[in-house]
Design a protein around this nucleic acid. Sequence first.
DNA 1: TTCCCGGACTAGAACGTACTAGTTGATCTC
DNA 2: GAGATCAACTAGTACGTTCTAGTCCGGGAA
Lengths: 365, 365
Amino acid sequence: MGEPEERPDDAGRTARPRGSGDGSADRKSPGGSRARGGRPTMADVARAAGISTALVSIVIRGVPGASEATRQRVLRIADELGYVPDQRAQKLRQSRSRVLGVTFELQQPFHGDLVEQIYTAAGQQGYEAMISAVAPSRSETTAVNALLRERCEAAILLGSELETEELTRLARRLPTLLVARHTDLSGVGVVRSDDTAGIGLAVDHLVALGHRRIAHIDGAGAPGSSDRRLGFLQAMAGHGLQDTADVLAGGLTETAGAEGMRYLLGRPTPPTAVIAFNDRCASGVLDVLARQGCDVPGEISVVGYDDSRLAKLPHVQMTTVSQNAAELAEAAVTSALALIAGRQPEEVVLTPRLVERATTGPARS
Amino acid sequence: MGEPEERPDDAGRTARPRGSGDGSADRKSPGGSRARGGRPTMADVARAAGISTALVSIVIRGVPGASEATRQRVLRIADELGYVPDQRAQKLRQSRSRVLGVTFELQQPFHGDLVEQIYTAAGQQGYEAMISAVAPSRSETTAVNALLRERCEAAILLGSELETEELTRLARRLPTLLVARHTDLSGVGVVRSDDTAGIGLAVDHLVALGHRRIAHIDGAGAPGSSDRRLGFLQAMAGHGLQDTADVLAGGLTETAGAEGMRYLLGRPTPPTAVIAFNDRCASGVLDVLARQGCDVPGEISVVGYDDSRLAKLPHVQMTTVSQNAAELAEAAVTSALALIAGRQPEEVVLTPRLVERATTGPARS
DNA sequence: TTCCCGGACTAGAACGTACTAGTTGATCTC
DNA sequence: GAGATCAACTAGTACGTTCTAGTCCGGGAA
């Protein structure tokens, strides 16, 4: 391949230099007069404009106290120098950081929806969202600690699986808000949708379509899982169907859904409808059914949960229970701000809504 | 529902107070002697221990210069007070922030994989990754500006779609590294895998299995798209199959793949194999095929790209071209550090690898 | 004894910003 | 014409850390 590199491990790798002078050498001193190797500061702008840093600060923040002429000149000079305010110094100076910390799971589409909405909800309240990801190789504790060091004013944890003890410790140092998780812990705020009622909606819908044998592939130990399981059993019992209510241990991934569905299809009398723990799980269910040539909703109906991106895909059109990410996010930000303001933690429970799409239909039998 | 709230829009929402005294009132002054309403600082710890802040700093950072007895005592007191170092103040004082900024697309599974690996790769080099998400409602410019204000030492942009002009501006202020995107722009580093060769691997594989009519659903204007399109056409021509090479405008979502596949199935003579722009796109393709009762790989073979989480799902087992997220991430971090150290921007090209799984097989005809 | 050395510790100055409490000089009021 | 008012600007401190340049003290070497 290319010319050899001094890096030791360049197996299967090509590297060639690029550019011709626009590299880092130029970057070091764009302003000219600035001596140190850092980025331009307010003092650099002030010096270039022949005024005090205080006045530059006034202009940059856009507060009254500077003449229009000066304002224009300072902004122009700042732009020329490539000046960007140092957020760390800003926040350090201001007593309030106006930052909300958010932990989320990197591979959970619904968390992606929530994060997006939290960005905008926080922005509308003059706050900034700082996100910290949870992944197989990055524990929730690591993610939370990162937020702690950033001096967020509050932490919003999406679908947290933190131990009670750790949660208590966190809540002692920082206003803490749990989203989409149920907890009896006092001292932490909760914003969630009514999981029990949500699954109830799904059951009602299916029963109204004539289904009797309905299975629920649950979320195993995931947050909200036990509520949904309970909601399923209660709703089924409410329709007198406790004997045909079937609960399977599942999980929140496509794999869990696929395994669950394969198991159900192996039964002598498979259910005519399946309610999955979430959309990802339902995706796995649908995939297995499609591969088996099983018509959805002709032979089997499927309901997901979350109304995430996955459910909305035009070729999927999944019937699902919507937690309404936007509403949840807004409630989360509002609650977090209330906590910051010193109000007592509350539990906000939103009402979910059934979104009927194309994966449910009349029972066959 | 519950008792009325003072919030105006409490439609479908229940709120009840929770907890009994472990709320924010307690949180305000856990240390006891601390007057202001903030979190404990180094000075608080120093006061409680009866020593100077400098010595506390020495203990907290774990550098030599304190007796073992003091060390123990300070750590105990710090823990009791719930002291956490203020990262902003730390970074402000230190000339180097040791933070790498990363922008990524919230709903792109492969970006999730990359981010996860970047976290660990950065950590190994003593750096911290600060992530900033891109989503439909949050532009890449917004994401990049957030990083700029945080005084990251470098920016790593995953699959950026930034205009050349904006990219140039950014690169002038900050060492900038593009991942998985091709650019001729000098002054920015690039880490990508060889897209042309990658698609070539897929074509070679399919041709070896006897396929002749092969279609490529491309990535429309997405980064890397033109390289892959070119690679497809070149590889097909290399096998003398330029006449049966078929390129369709696609995109990087399931929807694009599904639409493309439906279109292909409507043809008089559909292809016997499809190479999608990425795994998400291939997911859409597979979904449509499953629904049509079309056997994969019996009737049609499908190849994805990225080897993301989606391809590895046990019930999917997608044949795909691996960009090896871990390797890409490590190269990205290494390159970013090189840029920070003042070395000239390079283009690092990794060699992709074909991962044969269950969605490809011998051509039927 | 004297001198020096080194371990344990501290005073105080940065870092880049925001903000309080001014200081100008000009215009307005009666 | 004297004081008041106002707009435009500045000096200097504080935010919570790190780090340089010390001080202090006990003990070993000469």
